[in-house]
Every structure is written in structure tokens, then in C-alpha cells.
Nucleic acid binder design. Sequence first.
DNA 1: CAATCGAAAATCGTCAACGATTTTGGCGCG
DNA 2: CGCGCCAAAATCGTTGACGATTTTCGATTG
Lengths: 237, 237
Amino acid sequence: MESSTIRNSEALLRLRRDVSLAEVIRQEIEHMIDSGALNPGEWVNEATLAARFGVSRGPVREACRGLEQTGRLVFIVNRGAFVREVTEEEAAEIYDLRAVLFGFAGRLLAPKMTEAQHEELAALVTAMDEAALASDIDRYYPLNLAFHQKLVAFAGNRRLAASYERCVQELHLFRRRALIPEGRMACSNDEHKAILAALAARRPAMAERLMTAHVLRAKARILGDAAGTTPETSPMR
Amino acid sequence: MESSTIRNSEALLRLRRDVSLAEVIRQEIEHMIDSGALNPGEWVNEATLAARFGVSRGPVREACRGLEQTGRLVFIVNRGAFVREVTEEEAAEIYDLRAVLFGFAGRLLAPKMTEAQHEELAALVTAMDEAALASDIDRYYPLNLAFHQKLVAFAGNRRLAASYERCVQELHLFRRRALIPEGRMACSNDEHKAILAALAARRPAMAERLMTAHVLRAKARILGDAAGTTPETSPMR
DNA sequence: CAATCGAAAATCGTCAACGATTTTGGCGCG
DNA sequence: CGCGCCAAAATCGTTGACGATTTTCGATTG
């Protein structure tokens, strides 16, 4: 854990009146994990974190307990907290669930997507096209994430969004994770276009099928498919 | 919050060497919520709980932070923790997600259910038949819960099981919750039989359809259907 | 020289205490 | 009689400290 300063200089967390330290610190540690400042398997030192944030260990421990329940940390008694490592087997299971959730989001959104939502998603697809053309993965990756996230949010089921979000986060804890290979970017974005078309055409079943398949292809790419724990997860019925 | 003693007399939690107090207390509070000793909206007094468990407030706070992240408690700064109240709107969303998850479990389990698993589920159906015949809801309810839970567990996707479990728990926080009316018991168990038959026949698509519909019927019964936030959630494609 | 043992350091789990904020309850005022 | 104000009590958020366990690391031994 080696990022020199606190994330936001607005971490003048002393003039907060409506949020506890534990809350702030939980988000801070979350960000450290997401940004790679804290890697899977790594040990989380309470005293060090407390010192970095300029607080005592109490709030840090509360934050860690929260992160334990969201599957980001693992506690070992008398040894402390460690960033969770997601095994290949777990990753396969998470991908399968994520595929179902994403498909469900499509089924919900298709009959009710607004023009504004469509434009927002289309803009992301366009931007991804540009990034793909430039082979700029660093630009493509967050756009891709935003596309998926927005789509799930537009589906309008908060519990679904939360479950999906957690899947994405947990997959970040899988070491051999989604670094989209050069050639796949354009191809993957073609799938995005097909998905968006199905949504715009108000075809729930087709949107669901395409979106489930889209995630399962990502799974296959990263896990080599053979590792699939779910023979019947295929989108055809 | 009015249960006189601590749940287990084995709560001689002093001779534990491999689990932290926070962990024990989290489970204890969880049980208080599930058992109705702590109701939605109710305030969770740290000092009182600490006293009841014979510990200080530190571990209690850690436990509560964990429960906050699992959606059981809600923190309000400088006012403490409250048992979460799930609104009717949220309940509808959770039911929809749960229907999808349960259906997915069926799709996974159908092609691979073992004889032993089949017998275990069949035994529960038989027991529910007896309870239904006797109009004994108190006996029916936990059997019903076990049937669903086992089925999801047998599907073999731990992430799915966790998500499903959380849905069930959150629905417990919805006030007007699933008290199966007399007449529905036998009817509901008939659906269980159909589900079990589809699983035994190794028909994933049919199992999924039946299981999704089974949950959506529960939703309709409790929420009055009209409240359905998801017009396209219907099992037909 | 490698392995083992043991003392010192580091770290965790828990607790008790302190200020800050919120709630309570009584008092005066309109 | 109701309403707002003010002090007292209750509660929360946070801290620093203490014992217990784990880890580190050097000395000893085979």
C-alpha cells in the first residue's frame, strides 16, 4: 500500500457534519482497492491506515468490518484484515451470476428506455468506437464500465443494481482480470451496438439474450471457457 | 427489543479462540432481527446491547457496521443505528430480483441434481404436504424456507446463493410480509411438486420458468401485483 | 551451515473515558 | 392551554491505553 497522500485534498474530513469517519474511511479504502493501491491478498494494517488518515484505529476497524461484509476484505482473528482474493472458480461463478443480472437489466430496460437514456448510451458507444480505433485501452476501459453501469441503473431496480455492482467489484479481486486485448475492443463494442439496437427496438427477450451472451463471452475470454462451472448457462433455451 | 437472555447459553463467548466478539455479536443481532426481537424501524441502542452481551461498545459498533453493509441496519449520524425498513416499492424490486435468481438456480440445478438431493427436497415437500393438511402454518413456513434455500444451495453457485439469501433477508424487513394464507399452502406446495418434477426430468428451461413464476406469485399475493414495477418480468418470452 | 528455540517487537482485540450532539423534560410566556 | 426555550440527561463518535497473540530476528545447537 503505497499511495503517498489521501485521495481528495478535500479530505479535510474535519469539517464534515453529516457523515461518520468510518464511512469516509470505508470509501477511501474501497477506492484504494479499486485503484490498485491495495492488491488482493495484501494485508491491511490498521495502525498504518489510521495514521495516514489521521484518526484512531476505531473508525478504521469499523470501516473494515463493513468491507468484510461486502466481500472486499477477509478477517483472520489475531492477524487482521486482508484484501480478498477471488479464486478462478469463484470468478466463474460470479461471471455466471453477472451474466444473468445483466440480461435481466436488459429485459427490464427494453420496454421503457427513454430517448435521453438512449442518447446517453449511444454517446458512450461512440466514444468507445473512437477509443477502439485508437487502440486506447486506458480510455476504453472506464467507458465500457460506465456503459454497463448506466444500463443497469436505467433498468430501475436498485436491488439489481447493487447486486450487479458487487459482482463487478468482486471480479476486480480476481487477479487475472479483464484487460481487454487490443483486437477485442472493436468486436466488443459491436456487441454493445447490437444490445443498444435491441433495447431501442423494445425487444426485451433479444436484449436479454444479447446481454447475457456479452458477459459470458467476457468470462470465456478471461477464464478460457473450459473452466465454466455451469454447462447450462448458455443463452439458448 | 425485549428478549430476556442471550440466545445460546453457549454464549459463554469467553472460551472462543477463533472468532472475534464482533463476529459473534453480528450473528446475535442478525438473529434478533430475523426472530422479530428487533423490528424494522426500531432503534438499536449500542450501550444496551453491549451490556446485554457483557462487552463494551467497540465490538457492537463493528457488528453494526457490518450489518449496515448487508442492508440490515441503517446508520444516522449522531443518532445511531436503526433496523432497516423496506418500503413496498423496494420489496417489489427485491421480489423481481429474487424471482430471477431462483429461476437461475433451477436452470443450474436441473441438469445435475443428484438422487440424494432429489430425495432431500422430496422429503421437504412431503412434510409441507402434512403441514398444509393440518393447516399448520408455523410448521409450513420454515419447511418452505428450507426448500427454497436448499434448492439454491444445490445449484452450486455460492455467489448466487449469497445474493438470494440477502433477498430473503431483506424481504423480512418488509412489514407486510409473507404470511401464507391458509388456502395457499396446498396450492403453493403443488407448485413445489411441479418444480421438483421439472428438475428431476432434467428440464432446465421448464424449471426456470416454474421457479420464477413461483416467486412472482408470492410477490403478487403480498403486494397485490398492481404494484409491480416491472411490467416485463413475466416468465413468458 | 541449517534448523530450532526464545526473547523482543509489532499487531490485534477489547475496553474505558472524553467531548460533541441529540433527546428529554420542565419552565415561562403568549 | 399550547408553544418555544433552556438546562440536564442520554447517546453517539472518537480516542488512547492495556493485555493477548502473532511475527520477527538473533543466538544457540546439532
